[in-house]
Design a protein around this nucleic acid. Sequence first.
DNA 1: CGCGGTCTTGATACGGGTCAACGCGCGTGG
DNA 2: CCACGCGCGTTGACCCGTATCAAGACCGCG
Lengths: 253, 253
Amino acid sequence: MSHPADRKTSNAQVPAAISAGLSRLNVAPLSVAAGTDFQHEGDEAETVYLVESGWVASYTDLNQGQRQILYLHQAGDIAGFADLGSKTASCSLRSQRDCVLFPIPISKLQSPEFLSVATITALFQKYAQMQCILMRTLATVGRMEARHRVVWLILMLHDRVVGDSGDQMFEIPLNQSEIGDFLGLTNVSVSKMFSRLAEEGYIERKGRKILVRRLADMQKMIGYQNVPYRPEAMFAPVQAHTGKSARNRALSN
Amino acid sequence: MSHPADRKTSNAQVPAAISAGLSRLNVAPLSVAAGTDFQHEGDEAETVYLVESGWVASYTDLNQGQRQILYLHQAGDIAGFADLGSKTASCSLRSQRDCVLFPIPISKLQSPEFLSVATITALFQKYAQMQCILMRTLATVGRMEARHRVVWLILMLHDRVVGDSGDQMFEIPLNQSEIGDFLGLTNVSVSKMFSRLAEEGYIERKGRKILVRRLADMQKMIGYQNVPYRPEAMFAPVQAHTGKSARNRALSN
DNA sequence: CGCGGTCTTGATACGGGTCAACGCGCGTGG
DNA sequence: CCACGCGCGTTGACCCGTATCAAGACCGCG
């Protein structure tokens, strides 16, 4: 669990413990072309999707044709997790880029085959990470002015995609209308904010790719703190033997 | 698991499987007076709190003294779950009313003592429910006008507190400033929206208590759908014996 | 060449923020 | 008993930031 090889593990790949669990099931990878809505809100919820590569967006449509993008799932994330206890999907899923997904039937998610202690730990952690990012999104959308929301989005993605590996261009897997749907703005304001930020030298733009030029300034501007949950932060593995009786009791229903 | 007694189980109490897990640990209940900040963002994260009674708010403070309330935990919910993989707490916790809490050390959360299959199932489900509500909050704050946000809050709480048990007054465990901090508004707009709604006969107010008068109209107004995860919606218990080998493999780290 | 999707830019409108004054209920202390 | 302060909610006037509307530019593609 703390082999030197694991140190370099980026946030953006499937945690070892989860792919180990996966390998015990019979799940074939699923390729999905960019721009496909592969789950609709209200559909019967039978599957969660582990993202192997690409980007998936969870979103919901409101009354008057408004859309709110709720989460951007990158490689290693699980989409559709919110539907575990529900009969119908609570949000729609859409591939923002070409994706490879592992569709995991919810029924198998709770099978002893899949659920090793390490896998559970990893799942809890993934879940916690998602919840944390969701909460930050909420705080951003609820309490920041437009400019700061855009900055937050850039920093959040920079953090999740580039991480600590220095200056590097990256692509936002959303067009400006979709960015608006994520941040609670319109495409028009998004465009204006981006133009302004570029003009002020905070970022540089090449098509849809972005290079962050003044990272520290931007972080200071909105008081940004990195998303936690680097692999090193994993909480310690269980000390295996707390007595068989307890374990047996634990497993018998 | 499906005793007739369980049918009446409200959403607002600790799921049986979790309290069963709890009883295997040595966790003493903790009484907390209303208005106590018992966890601060950035503190070392060692504990999650299972709410036995009362209301707990998760919140975060932004740059310029802005506050965003992220979640309202009622009885049966778990607060601090987002910190599982992190070393420090990602949000602050505050008792909105007098509370009884079970502080569960994160280290024990993953102990085989605690983690029976039923408990895991219940935990996943609780987590999924929280995520679902969080997402709805995000959609509300991101995409609705002020009036609709307030209506959503009323319906969401009505749903979680009153449920199907007909006309009934209930209390919002937040003052108007806090409602603003939850919905991304100011206390002033909240006040105006409430006054208007009362005047238009949607709700009736007695102090801080509320009676919903025109439930269907309000639901139609914002296209509200109930929070899922009634107890009946619980996903089926595992069929226990899929082969010991699998189970053993599953438990060995 | 024309077309659709996307981004940009400017003019205008309006919802909710901000500021400020006031009322009310309650606890405290003189 | 009253005076006072404090927290909370209400109401009105004004202002600002973002939505809305609209026109145009750019680009890839058939």
